[in-house]
Design a protein around this nucleic acid. Structure first.
Length: 860
RNA sequence: GCGGGCGUGGUGGAAUUGGUAGACACGCCAGACUUAAAAUCUGUUGGGCGUAAGCCCGUGCCGGUUCAAGUCCGGCCGCCCGCACCA
């Protein structure tokens, strides 16, 4: 008697069984035996308190990989934790008066409850939360080690100040001149800050990218651009004329020393030290600096801002001709943060320089002749020529190619001791100070006598005070009545704690290493890290392509330098996969308000209406699920209606994992139908075998089964879950059809097929897979069963169907023995009725036989 | 502006990397079951012509290479993402 599959009863049963068997506990290296290791990790979530579909998709993908590796005989580490520090907890404190710690820990509990029914193969015994002293104590140790090893320093610097969040932002957190979280226009302020010396690894971080073959090309490119390596020359220009006191040269970086003879001005950034010096005595320079500061840093402002400059009233001498004096300007298009904050303008070869030169009537001397151009009539009007060519108007460089001229110019500069070849990076050091309560305290004390003193190890962790006051803006740690008042660990006198906390990106830069042994007394257990790292497969959103992933790569290098880990490669993530988002249609009511999907419906005629009042609804674009547009579907509701398997199956079907997937009601129903169909196939299983299944239809069925084994395995390993799903569908359909076939050996073949189907489905929809496995009487749990292997003899066929083309168009097909040679196939092809008929009035010129694939007859 | 990616039925997407375009799924349509609906099952479904066997067209556009092009090459058009006055 057919039964309906009821996930509400079945799913909890199997989760309990997995728990009881402890199947997801990673074994420490000493107990792993011969098994190879596999470290599968998804980016850990921020505990917002609310599970969303993006989580479901992310963790379902990781689960497919982890469960497949587990079944394939690996010792799998698949841990879970919480990226638990951060501003939302403080915002909750400010808005609702909740303590950030209480709020965060409650959220973690709530989310754990929402995660549980998904049936993910996490090893919860290694759970960690970055806000717990047991985690951040080690982070403070790492910080102090980095301090010892010169990887941390303090400097006063201009910082991005978010006036709404009252905090400093990293460059990466400023998007279009606005705070990444608040959206407020970012201001510039001078503050003393802690910095991580990520730039000392710039080249290594760049080179390491080349070894990351299992990373998306896109992410590698983005990181490479972010690091931004440029080769060129550093040139020291001796000053002349009425230069400020103490200034005897100006350093300039250029990638184009070949265009030096086209130089017509030097330009300094408005906040270059020399410009600032001059502003103290010259009002017009001060006015100019103020004018430049007024122009925002937004994309639009930069694009439309006209070139602005001011003649600083002194000159420099050309490095190749001491008699040639060149005026020094300050210009708004020069960045103080790149190179040396100064450029030489060679207008014919650079559009910005040209715009500037035209505006202020500075000379424009072309020095690069484009290929094929004539020196006599090559002119620069409004467009600079930036391409390669032959150097002219350039004395000793004349006649050289641009590339050769670069080398020659650098050699000459080195000769004259006025410069040398140089490399510059766009990457800047990572400012990690945050004026925030809910973060990892920076474990140092400031003493008037001793300066900055590290907190001694036995006093770690420096814990956050439990009674922060959020009634006023600013940093509660700084305002706290007692917390910052300490005695200096060195001299014993009164001193002050550092009240800044660390950027939360620090927390996530090493958690994957902590997972290797969450009980270790050291920040990272050296031996276990050597065993587990690198993470074999890391999965997360592409929004972390630069920030988190670059910082984590920096951290493994820093940990290595500090002697805290010992790995053959400093790359933390051998494989990276960036998954797409979950999207949904958007809906707007008649009065232009966003409506959630559950409040709208489609009538028979296809019109969309608001359920509450029947008024028409406008269907908008398909966009990432977001609270603001209300196009959100709550996974918890889907799971309670349809079960976790349906939710998981849906987010893994149809769309390739790297692309966005659109959530639709009909798609959910499709997934539900599949689960029911799968169960009906398993439920209809014959009770016993009926002999050998090596002939006729039974053999054909077995072939289909083994093709599915092959295909699904490959699909999983290559992150083509959608095609793996399609093949599971296909096998299910084949098995369904086989139910009415009573040929010899069919029962045997069907029982094999259902067992295989359960195994192939298990990584995707693990609960129903267990139920099917049990239904046909297989021993143990499917999660513990060895992944099936395809029998190679069943993957090849005796006969193949070959299409026959005539002049590239299909005209018929033949069945040929798989081992037939080209001559035999040709003979069969030419004899095929339709082909022969088609060829009756033509003569065959050539026959191309591609064995196993196709036959093409060229005829005329 | 620079860098990366993409463009295939009504829809999401397949296509063994140059070898039968449209697997699988959604939707639509038809049929079975039902008093009826839902659910379920079965079948059809790229477009055009044809009673039919069949023929023609078809992977953004134009051209090329090849026995053979969604796939390779050249040139356009469009969309998406990242970076952006980086010297």
């Amino acid at each position: 008697m057919a039964t309906r599959y009821n996930p509400k009863e079945v799913e909890p049963k199997w989760r309990a069984a997995w728990d009881e068997a402890g199947v997801f506990r990673a074994k420490p290296p000493s107990e792993a035996g011969e098994k190879p290791k596999a470290y599968v990790l998804e980016m850990f979530p921020y505990p917002s308190g609310r599970l969303h579909m993006g989580h479901v998709r992310n963790y379902a993908m990781g689960d497919v990989v982890a469960r497949h590796r587990l079944a394939s005989g690996y010792n799998v580490l698949h841990p879970m934790g919480w990226d638990a520090f951060g501003m939302p907890a403080e915002n909750a404190a400010i808005e609702k008066g909740a303590h950030p710690g209480v709020w965060t820990r409650d959220n973690i509990e709530a989310m754990k409850e929402q995660f549980a029914p998904l049936g993910l193969s996490f090893d919860w015994s290694r759970e960690l939360a970055t806000c717990e002293p047991s985690y951040y104590a080690h982070q403070q140790r790492i910080f102090l080690k980095m301090l010892e090893n010169d990887l941390v320093y303090r400097k006063t610097s201009k910082v991005n100040w978010d006036p709404v969040d009252n905090t400093v932002l990293a460059n990466e957190q400023v998007i279009d001149g606005k705070g990444w979280r608040s959206g407020a226009a970012v201001e510039q302020r001078e503050l003393e800050q802690w910095f991580f010396k990520i730039t000392s690894y710039a080249d290594d971080l760049l080179q390491g990218l080349e070894t990351l073959e299992n990373w998306p090309e896109k992410v590698r490119t983005m990181q490479s651009n972010w690091i931004g390596k440029s080769r060129g020359a550093k040139i020291r220009w001796p000053v002349s004329g009425d230069a400020p006191d103490g200034v005897d040269q100006i350093d300039v970086f250029t990638t184009r020393p070949d265009t030096l003879f086209g130089a017509s001005f030097l330009a300094l950034a408005p906040d270059h030290p020399i410009t600032k010096r001059l502003s103290e005595t010259r009002a017009e320079v001060a006015d100019f600096i103020a004018e430049c500061a007024k122009i925002g840093t937004s994309e639009e402002a930069i694009e439309t801002a006209p070139k602005l400059g001011i003649d600083l009233g002194f000159t420099v001498r050309h490095p190749f001709d001491p008699d040639w004096e060149i005026p020094v300007w300050s210009a708004n298009f020069v960045l103080s943060t790149y190179g040396s904050g100064a450029v030489f303008g060679s207008p014919a070869g650079d559009q910005r320089d040209l715009d500037f030169a035209r505006k202020y009537d500075l000379p424009v001397t072309p020095v690069v002749l484009p290929p094929g151009a004539d020196a006599a009539d090559h002119k620069i009007e409004d467009e600079a020529y930036t391409g390669p060519g032959e150097i002219y108007n350039s004395r000793f460089l004349d006649g050289l190619s641009t590339d050769d001229a670069i080398d020659a110019a650098i050699a000459k500069l080195e000769d004259l001791d006025l410069g040398e070849g140089a490399t510059t990076y766009r990457l800047r050091d990572w400012g990690v100070s945050r004026q925030r309560y809910w973060g990892c305290p920076i474990p140092v004390v400031r003493c008037e006598t001793c300066g900055v003193v590290p907190v001694p190890d036995e006093q770690l962790p420096v814990e956050l005070p439990n009674d922060p006051d959020f009634s006023q803006p600013g940093n509660p740690l700084d305002r706290h009545p007692t917390w910052k008042h300490v005695t200096c660990p060195q001299c014993g006198r009164d001193a002050l704690r550092e009240t800044d906390t660390l950027d939360t990106f620090v927390d996530s830069s090493w958690y994957f290493a902590r997972f290797c042994n969450t009980d270790s007394d050291a920040p990272v257990d050296r031996e276990e890290a050597a065993y587990w790292l690198p993470v074999d497969q890391y999965i997360g959103g592409v929004e972390h392509a630069v920030l988190h992933l670059l910082y984590a790569r920096f951290f493994t290098r820093a940990l290595q330098t500090c002697g805290l880990i010992d790995l053959p490669s400093a790359e933390p993530f051998a494989g990276l996969f960036t998954q797409g988002m979950v999207t949904h249609e958007t809906y707007k009511s008649a009065d232009d308000k966003w409506l959630p999907p559950e409040e709208v419906d489609q009538t028979k005629s296809g019109a969309w209406i608001e359920i509450a009042n029947g008024r028409p609804v406008t269907v908008g674009g398909v966009e990432k699920m977001s609270k603001s547009k209300k196009n959100v579907v709550d996974p918890t509701l889907i799971i309670s209606d349809f079960g976790a398997d349906v939710a998981r199956w849906f987010v893994l079907s149809d769309s390739p994992p790297e692309r966005d997937v659109q959530w639709t009601q009909s798609g959910v129903e499709g997934a539900w139908r599949f689960v029911q169909r799968l169960w009906s196939v398993a439920d209809a299983a014959p009770d016993a075998d009926d002999g050998l299944a090596d002939t006729g239809d039974a053999l054909e069925l077995r072939r289909a089964i083994h093709r599915a084994i092959e295909g699904v395995g490959q699909g999983i390993e290559s992150f083509r879950f959608n095609t793996a799903v399609a093949q599971i569908h296909e096998l299910t359909n084949t098995l369904k059809k086989a139910e009415t076939n009573s040929s010899a050996g069919m029962n045997t073949a069907r029982r094999e097929g259902i067992a295989v189907l359960a195994q192939l489905t298990a990584p995707f929809a693990p609960h129903i897979a267990e139920e099917c496995w049990a239904r046909i009487g297989c021993k143990g749990l499917v999660v513990q069963a060895d992944w099936p292997t395809a029998d190679p003899s069943l993957l090849t066929l005796d006969t193949v169907t070959l299409p026959i083309q005539v002049n590239g168009k299909k005209r018929g097909e033949i069945d040929a023995p798989v081992d037939a040679n080209a001559d035999q196939i040709e003979e069969l092809a030419l004899a095929e009725m339709k082909v022969a008929a088609f060829l009756s009035d033509k003569s065959v010129r050539k026959v191309i036989v591609v064995p196993g694939r196709i036959v093409n007859i060229v005829a005329s």
